[in-house]
């Protein structure tokens, strides 16, 4: 009873066989579960300029209230949600000289000073995607800064030099433009605060400046993701 019926199906099937693709194309679409996208990882390099909160102190010692910074790090992004975590670091170094300040007048003493900043930033943030402009990726974030501060000068003992890390915090915002699938460029602004890191001595005490942070504007080159 079954054999004629099976045969009919087989013939029908053979008649209908033009090729595999056609068979799939003509198949009725059916919903299937979206595959889970893996966490994307990428790296970045930054170049920017920081305007120090302790502007007077940096200006007097280093001759400028701002300076160029270099950095880099990695970014982990959860694509579906757009949440990301950055772990990055930057570096600043400035040379100046020790001074004495009296009644607003500045006397330069000719004793070389080198100031080096090495902050490490851990940032959590959100980078949404917009269908209308998939190459433009705005992002915001904030996090913890471990702010390395080193100040050395001629004629100083180890105790008189400074080499410490301070706790700080930062918030940032920027816009990334994907140039290629694996390459992007971003402009971002970061505000960092490192309260009570300075101000007990040195010119920072004279100016009553206690925050080692500042506002930086950075260009970020992103790789991967």
């Amino acid at each position: 009873m079954l054999r004629p019926f099976a045969l009919i199906l087989t013939v029908a099937g053979l008649l209908a066989w033009p090729g595999a693709d056609d068979a799939f194309a003509q198949a009725k679409p059916r919903p299937r579960p979206q595959p889970r996208q893996a966490i994307e990882a990428g790296g970045f390099a930054t170049l920017g300029n920081i305007n120090f909160t302790a502007a007077d102190s940096f200006d007097v010692i280093l001759g400028s209230p701002s300076g160029v910074i270099f950095g880099g790090g990695i970014r982990l992004v959860d694509p579906p949600t757009g949440f990301f975590i950055d772990v990055g670091a930057w570096w600043f170094q400035g040379d100046g000289e020790r001074v004495f300040i009296s009644e607003g007048e500045e006397f330069r003493l000719g004793i070389p000073v080198e100031v080096t900043l090495t902050p490490i930033e851990v940032t959590a943030g959100w980078r949404p995607r917009f269908r209308a402009a998939p190459r433009i990726l705005p992002y915001v974030g904030g996090g913890y800064t471990s702010f390395g501060y080193k100040e050395t000068s001629d004629f100083a003992t180890d105790e008189e030099n400074v080499d410490e890390r301070f706790h700080g915090y930062h918030v940032l915002g920027g816009i990334e433009i994907r140039i290629l699938r694996w390459l992007g460029v971003a402009g971002e602004a970061t505000w960092t605060t490192v309260p009570n890191a300075i101000g007990e001595s040195g010119v920072s005490a004279v100016f009553d400046e206690t925050d080692l942070g500042g506002t930086s504007f950075r260009v970020r080159l992103t790789f991967g993701q």
Binding site: R98, I111, V162, I198, E200, G202, S204, V206
Partner: peptide, 10 residues
């Protein structure tokens, strides 16, 4: 100490 003057933080 006076001749050394002031640094940024110390």
């Amino acid at each position: 100490a006076t001749l050394r003057g002031l640094g940024l933080a110390r």
